[in-house]
Design a protein around this nucleic acid. Structure first.
Lengths: 340, 340
DNA sequence: CTGAAAGCGCTTACAG
DNA sequence: CTGAAAGCGCTTACAG
């Protein structure tokens, strides 16, 4: 490895000061055009590498934004991340990704790392049981936060998410309108705000239609394809045999449909299934999945742009409007068939 | 935000020097046990945050490792990333993830960022057409690299990947042994070493069995579920109607099976399909996918551990043994049925 | 076992 | 338009 090249290397070579070089490289109008070009040219030639640590130590801005979610490999978050990536790329921020897998200590370690690196801000889908104090602590130490998908009571930071109760009500009402009366809710957890909201939407719709809400028709837990697949046996063994499943999300719905197919029944015919999120995969699934569009792109876009606003000192309203979900009807839902 | 707390804040409060505080916080044996405890206790109390930028400026180690792949949301890379994450977490390295989407300039921007941040190393699955000089430049600037999944000629860095030619030969031979004679290869690209190797393995197996390799039976391109789904029409319209498809990867295979099902045929019965990678999803697919285990976990583990070795100054052998793939037979392959 | 001082490579007032 | 100098918050010889 050759001798380290730094600002002063350039300054010495060209007979100017490091201040001038620094300004020139950042296109400051304070530097004469000809000087600037000469400096930039030379820097390129000798392969100068800007030292962001040194700069950041001095300016206390790092150009790093943290993003932490339950699991970046989950397509739901993946779609949000893509739009965050798109938004942040334009403002030349580097983003540090992490999974917390709903482990509070993993999340804390990550926030700590961000603080140590002097990150400019963080976008988070908080782990289950995240106390407001964790977020307040971050903010007090100069790490502004915005939340996505899940809320934290008392955190006093902007949250971007869909109207979950409304969304599951859309799906449930669709099933009811097809004639289903025994509808199960498969997957999800009461431990997140999202989980509670989605279940509530289902309950609301059932009650509004005068249908009975059987506690046993709730199959909590699954949140992945694997989970939905495994839940199929349990669902099919439910007493009073529900004719439809309102699933926690698309992954659970697709897994459940696979499990139902393995049991020799035809999803979309024998059993109606709805998803939630409208992942790209929903259209490819067989049968194509009836689901609720949840505005992932929009969530990511708004969250990133709100964080950038915050970084630029603008105030961001705490109460953000919920994104209105939309029902996308495909082939996985139909009129009920009595099961024997 | 309260007054910034730094080493000297602690030093002043306790009447010791910053040198002592620095050493104590890093558990140096040079500091007396009682002093150390007093310092650590106090630091915790007042909420001291270690400034890694400052430390890294001084030590020129950042604790950051970069990882760049085609697309982190692709389950194939996701599984590799999980094991990298697992491995690096143990050594307390922070890792910066990025997608290059096979765009050379995105990859270059990322490598630049790593250099600027003083990252300790990088694990990459190089973008298509990555010149060896890009990797050499990184190494010369103090950013050691190891490659995963794809090789770059002349880069002279360790590569961790499976034996792709052997793997597709396994799948193809399995189909041949079931009695298939007209086997198509669906998906993949000749632009990566992996793509060329996998196709070669298929060709080798066909030729070894004395079967004709029809150029028209190659359907290049698809690498995702969506791609496989869309390729179904093309596959089904192939002349001489192949009875089996050896797919580029599991995603393509699953997409293709969905497309075949939509066309009214039964995958695994009317058409045999093999995947590659053995993603978690392969078992859940309907029918369960016959596929080639590709050792993702192993690739990630070995790459991370090799990079850590490199960081610690150990020499890492350039020529790494290829990971031996294994065939996992499930329900998506069977004896050929003549199509009308 | 502990402290004083230099230095990592930038940027930013300040002066000219 | 350009330069000299201080300082961001650490760590590391070096001295005691």
């Amino acid at each position: 490895m050759a001798q380290k090249i730094k600002l002063s290397t350039i300054a010495d070579a060209l007979g100017v000061s490091t201040a001038t070089v620094s300004l020139a490289l950042r296109d400051s109008p304070l530097v004469a055009g000809s000087t600037r070009e000469k400096i930039k040219e030379h820097a390129r030639e000798i392969g100068y590498i800007y030292n962001r640590r040194a700069a950041s130590l001095r300016t206390s801005r790092s150009g790093i934004v943290g993003v932490v979610v339950h699991d970046i490999m989950n397509p739901f978050y993946a779609e949000i991340l893509r739009s965050i990536e798109h938004e942040l790329d334009r403002s030349r921020q580097t983003f540090l990704l992490s999974n917390h897998y709903d482990q509070l200590d993993k999340q804390r370690t990550f926030i700590d790392t961000l603080l140590q690196l002097g990150a400019d801000g963080v976008i988070m889908s908080p782990a289950i049981d995240t106390p407001a104090s964790d977020i307040i602590m971050a903010e007090e130490n100069g790490l502004p936060a915005v939340l996505i998908a899940r809320d934290v009571d008392g955190a006093h930071v902007p949250v971007f998410r869909g109207d979950d109760a409304y969304g599951t009500a859309l799906a449930t009402n669709h099933l009811i309108s097809l004639g289903h009366k025994r509808i199960a809710m498969v997957g999800g957890t009461d431990q997140t705000s999202t989980g509670r909201d989605r279940y509530q939407g289902y309950v609301n719709a059932m009650e509004a239609a005068g249908l009975e809400v059987m506690p046993s028709w709730r199959v909590p837990g699954p949140r992945t394809k694997q989970g939905g697949f495994e839940a199929a046996a349990q669902f099919l063994a439910l007493k009073d045999k529900p004719t439809a499943a309102c699933c926690w999300n698309d992954l659970v719905a697709i897994g459940l449909m696979n499990g139902i197919a393995r049991a020799g029944l035809v999803p979309g015919v024998d059993i109606s299934v709805t998803g939630y999120d409208d992942l790209e995969e929903a259209q490819i699934a067989t049968p194509a999945l009836t689901t609720v569009w949840n505005g992932q792109r929009e969530v990511g876009r708004r969250a990133a742009s709100a964080l950038l606003d915050k970084l630029n000192g603008q105030t961001v309203r705490l109460s953000q409007e919920l994104i209105k979900p939309e029902l996308h009807v495909r082939q996985s839902t139909g009129r009920p068939v009595e099961r024997v």
